[in-house]
Design a protein around this nucleic acid. Sequence first.
RNA 1: GCCCUCGUAGCUCAGUGGAUAGAGCACCGGCCUCCGGAGCCGGGUGCGGAGGUUCGAUUCCUCUCGAGGGCGCCA
Length: 613
Amino acid sequence: MQSLRDALEDRMRAALAAVVGPEGRELDPLIRPTQDARFGDYQSNVALSLAKRLGEKPRDTAARLVAALALDDLTDPPEVSGPGFINFRFRPAFLAAQLAAIQADPRLGLAPVAEPQRVVVDFSSPNLAKEMHVGHVRSTIIGDCIARLLEHFGHTVLRLNHVGDWGTQFGMLIQHVRELQPHVLEDPEQLHIDDLEAFYVEAKRRFDSDPEFAVRARRAVVDLQSGDPMALEVWRAFCRESLRHCHEIYERLGVRLEDRGESFYNPYLPELVAELRARELAVDHDGAVCFFVEGWTNREGKPLPLMVQKSDGGYNYDTTDLAGIRHRTGVERAARIIYVTDIRQHQHFEMVFAGARKAGWAPPSVSLEHVGFGMILGVDGRPFRTRDGGTIKLKELLDEAIERAAARVAELREKDPERRPDTSPEADANIARIVGLGAVKYADLSHNVTSDYRFDWNTMLALEGNTAPYMLYAYARIRSIRRRAHPGNAGILPAPAQHVPGVDSPEIHSWELPPDLPILLEHPSEVALAKQLLHFVPTLRQVAVELRPHLLTDYLYGLSRAYSTFYDRERGVRIVDAEPESVRLSRLRLCDLTARTLKLGLELLGIGVLEQM
RNA sequence: GCCCUCGUAGCUCAGUGGAUAGAGCACCGGCCUCCGGAGCCGGGUGCGGAGGUUCGAUUCCUCUCGAGGGCGCCA
């Protein structure tokens, strides 16, 4: 379906062609949303720039454009205002017709793309040598959201967990276990994640403080690379146990991921380096093999290379990431590869992208994108840590989120026991789970990805403001109107949502309303809500291009606010008891569309909804 | 030294080459006999600084100040 803005752009291009000749069609009509409702819904700024070219006054140009505009019944007659802006205001009947087109569509107006792309989203990617911690939460949540969104557009998305399952940290672990925990070698299958974490902490400490241990650990990496059976057995046990732990967390978060760690690319590395050398793209340098890509320098101002092979013969992440791109373009046929990592790795990815381009492994048709996110800070503005400065384990963070949400639910129940007399401890536990996990996800996704943000339990669990509890409550309240409006169906409503947030999105069921129901937009709050509903699809399109999920949270919050005004007893309208019946049904339809939009929007964020709270 | 990400209201954060830069929290005042108030309306200060490009800059460019980060054998 064409967006409102696209419709205006088309009309304006036609008018431009009429005024300046055929080349007018190529001009950008400069259609922008207005900042103030007094100026209508959209404005065109094209007259201001065009007037200079034509050597006339902007207002005169604007007037000529207005005269040439054929808007039919899309908008009221456009007005020229200020120095030469042209203001457009949509007519309610046109908005109603647009809404009618989406109300029968389970996808709410977003048709699947005609030509699906193969897209790789590389996200989460923890280091398998230790437990997942708070540092992995952003990549996991943002990556999942991006994947969901692109899947919803109909693209074929490969969700890759590029786990750190190789390299120095495993040499450290293996050597540590050999020396101090030999019992593990006897029965590696007994290994537990807690042991792994403890081993890592201890091995890391020794590695950093004992140079001789560091040498032995590096030698252990060589054992691993050369296929030493004992080393491999321990390594496999470490990875298996660590991945089991990761997937417990993914399951809880409703995140689907395919594990394909660094070691997957091991077989490709020697040939990759050999090819670069043969093509003279890489050269020997201080015993290492370096691939120089223009544009980066080190501290001394000398060219900074991608180091594709270390002087000890090993490989590092430059090599595996290059191999990853080659595999993803060559074997997976990806048209778009998206990396979701800490923003500190931005330069690394820029270099790898440049290297892949130079080597021809990423042709211009393939898009390489790094979504770099900022840090999570504590309420004090310093890196988010435990009280004693330790790392916050992801599992414990999620436990706390659910516990805190449960406490909030208990508080509300105590304060107003009459509100939900029908609830049960099990239902409340489910509410706490959805609200708690949703709060963590929403807090993350509602911030600009590149920014650092403060992790504040009180803010993210508040029922007011741009938070998950607010959005979930908004949804639940609309659903309660449905129950009120259709008492006959009260007993056959689906049970409260039990699904893992959005992994298998349940179909969004419309209310039992006639499919061809006319929508009547008369009250200002109805018109405002209608416009907001029609912005959903353009918002999704923008997020899919720019990969900025907070645009979606902002949109959903705006939708809730528009609904809130629509529903307000003073500024809004009556709904359940509205008369006549045609008006009542039209308003119920607006409620229905709002609920469906909220539900779909939240599910694209990876957040499940609740029918009752 | 070079490079990257930033700098917006008391606080937490949005935002745009266009008109008077927004929202939440907090604070003050007002409204409605309330479909499950997540109510609604009104009230204040702000684009770190200086130049430049432009009809127009908070947005783009340069410089500068400040914060954080990256800069060959960790990832």
